[in-house]
């Protein structure tokens, strides 16, 4: 009689409150093959009215806000990507500023001076931003926070807690194409590489050729803020948390990874904030470089 089998301490083996080894289990291991599926009764009558939700609070505000902001971001980004101009402020204005959307500029279509010594894809004549956005785009689109954001606001699955999602069938992230979300940690590796490049861009922005050599301008501060925001966003990532220490079961035997995990865990608690901040900062950085490059104003030198 399985329901009444208890060990000597009164706890039920295998239950949520008890976890005792099965004495009669000679194999000593439970794998998926050992777990016998137990039929689940479905189709019972549910209580409550057949309505989409009983919530009366403005639950729709948050997904609506996310929908509007992400749509505006995507619209701006698409526009900026296909401008294919005004993304680099070079020697003619005594600066070295490149838009984060167009970095690294390693293709044949890059304007002179923007690619440094990294010109790789000579044959690529489309907009360089397609390369520049590939890594960060992959990282953001598979990010655990943004997944929540767009599943709720765009896919309506669900639009809010205790609000019916409206889709007849649901397979989550268990089937193609959403099973590809599992590549997020590789997207994180790529994002780290991008961060290094954007950090180099920020450092190079302190070069003011023909304007005193090395100094600080508003543009250099903007690109520095951009790199810093992206580092914080990347280092607070859930995949980072797992890779740095989350995979460890015995922290006492891995003190360095435990320390790293604790730091990343603290950052991870505000991953959402970093996600939004870095999104806005990227747009601001691109817009600033774009305006300076277009000649709307010159990049002020601070000191």
């Amino acid at each position: 009689m399985a329901c009444c089998r208890v060990d000597r301490t009164g706890r039920h083996p295998g239950g949520p409150g008890g976890s005792e080894p099965e004495k009669e289990d000679k194999s000593g291991v439970s794998t998926i093959d050992d777990v016998k599926p137990i039929p689940v009764t479905i189709g019972g009558v549910r209580g409550g009215p057949a309505v989409r939700t009983l919530r009366r609070d403005p639950w729709w505000k948050s997904p609506a806000f996310t929908f509007v902001v992400l749509t505006l971001f995507v619209a701006y980004t698409v526009w900026a990507v296909f401008q294919n101009a005004d993304y680099f402020v070079g020697l003619s204005q005594h600066r070295d500023l490149i838009s984060p959307l167009y970095s690294p500029c390693i293709v044949g279509s890059c304007v002179p001076g923007s690619h440094g010594s990294f010109l790789v894809l000579h044959w690529w004549m489309l907009t360089p931003a397609l390369i520049g956005l590939s890594g960060p785009g992959l990282f953001r689109s598979t990010c655990y926070y943004y997944r929540k954001a767009y599943y709720r606001s765009f896919w309506q699955s669900p639009p809010g807690c205790a609000v019916a999602d409206g889709h007849k069938r649901y397979t989550g992230e268990s089937r193609f194409p959403l099973i590809l979300q599992n590549i997020h940690r590789y997207a994180w590796y790529v994002a780290i590489a991008w961060n290094v490049i954007l950090t180099i861009d920020a450092i190079m922005a302190y070069r003011l050729p023909g304007d005193g050599g090395i100094g600080v301008s508003v543009g250099s501060l903007v690109l520095t803020a951009n790199a810093a925001a992206l580092w914080m966003y990347s280092l607070s990532c859930h995949a980072c948390r797992h890779v740095t220490g989350g995979h460890v079961n015995e922290f006492s035997k891995a003190p360095i990874r435990h320390r790293l995990w604790k730091v990343v865990s603290k950052l991870n608690a505000i991953h959402m904030q970093f996600a939004w901040i870095s999104l806005f900062v990227v747009v601001i950085a691109d817009a600033y470089v774009r305006m300076v490059a277009a000649g709307w104003f010159t990049d002020p030198k601070l000191f």
């Binding site: 997944r147 205790a162 649901y170």
Partner: peptide
């Protein structure tokens, strides 16, 4: 894999 981490 069914969970889509919407955090409800």
């Amino acid at each position: 894999g069914l969970c889509n981490i919407t955090k409800c």
